[in-house]
Amino acid sequence: MGNVYFWIIYAVVIGSAIIALEATSLLWAAVSFVVLLSEIALVYFGLNMPVLGGVQLAIYAGGVTILVLFAIMMIGESYKKPEGKAVKAIVLSLLLLILGTFFSFLSAIDTLPFKTFSTEVLGTVFVEKYSFFTIVLGFIVSALLYMANAIITKKREAK
């Protein structure tokens, strides 16, 4: 089992994922989606895969999110409460979750030693090497989000 930080990350990932699906505003859903992707990048960093984490941030949290934002821009923001056949979906997804967890405990995947790395070292490396990059990226993303919000608001007001 993981420590408390892991479970915090877990809670943030799942929580942001659920918010991304359930949020009434599509724009805030997109923001929540970005949070989710960034948290996964954090998990990659935690697994001692900084390059993968960087790529995750760059392509997912950067490129895909921008695309999503543009799509939302083109279509127009929707405030409708998303509806759907929730019961079937919940049952199936819970089934998947239980099955997957059950089999992960059933299988012999923990016979191999699992490499854990010190996140302190990782954090040092990250701050030393990638902090600037991350900060710049974060600003750009924030600016884009703000611009997108502004444009959408203007459009709605114009209508």
């Binding site: 993981g2 930080y5 995947i109 923990d110």
Partner: peptide, 23 residues
């Protein structure tokens, strides 16, 4: 060790994400 977990915990994270995605 800021982030410390065994493979089952990571897999549980992965499966949870999958479950939310499927949902």
């Amino acid at each position: 060790m800021l982030l410390e977990a065994d493979v089952h915990a990571y897999l549980f994270l992965s499966f949870s994400l999958l479950a939310v995605g499927v949902y």
